[in-house]
Amino acid sequence: MPELIAKSALDGRSLTLAGVTLAEASAGPITSIAILQDGAKDVAKGLKPLGLAFPKPQQFTEKAGVRIVWTGRDQAFLIGVAPPELEGAAVTDQSDGWTVLAVTGVAAVDVLARLVPMDLRPAAFPVKQVLRTQVSHMNAIILRTGDYAVEIMVFRSMARTAWHEVQTAMEMVAARSGIKI
């Protein structure tokens, strides 16, 4: 069988304006793990070899480049590794369904403040926290990956729209930072 090359939605492009960098991040395999009724124990057992535990609401954990991200009630995304054998959960491959945008820089929060109806400043949104909310009107999963780093997961079908929205906000923040009052 020929080797097929997975292409990302945005060709891994990146853009820097006013000290904020927007880049498409490559996440690797994304697997949804939805716990079935009374399946929590089996899922915990299945995740043990990876050194990960099922995340609490609004949390994600990371170990050796593998992430497990809370995405809903009894649901999490395992990102960056092929899924282990899991009992007690509905496991579905989501790898090509999502696009990840990494927004980094001191003013990243100012850019996203124009798009996201949540307080994303570090005090309200610390590292290792995840939110399911909206970017403009697109449903998104937003991860705080570092002090000045945020990752946004949107449906792949909305990748270019999301890019456009963030880019526009970056241009506005850049323009404003040039104004002397």
Binding site: P57, Q58, M118, T133
Partner: peptide, 11 residues
């Protein structure tokens, strides 16, 4: 109960 305090427009 899962997401915390949210604006009405999310619902």
């Amino acid at each position: 109960p899962l997401c915390g305090d949210r604006d009405r427009r999310e619902f």
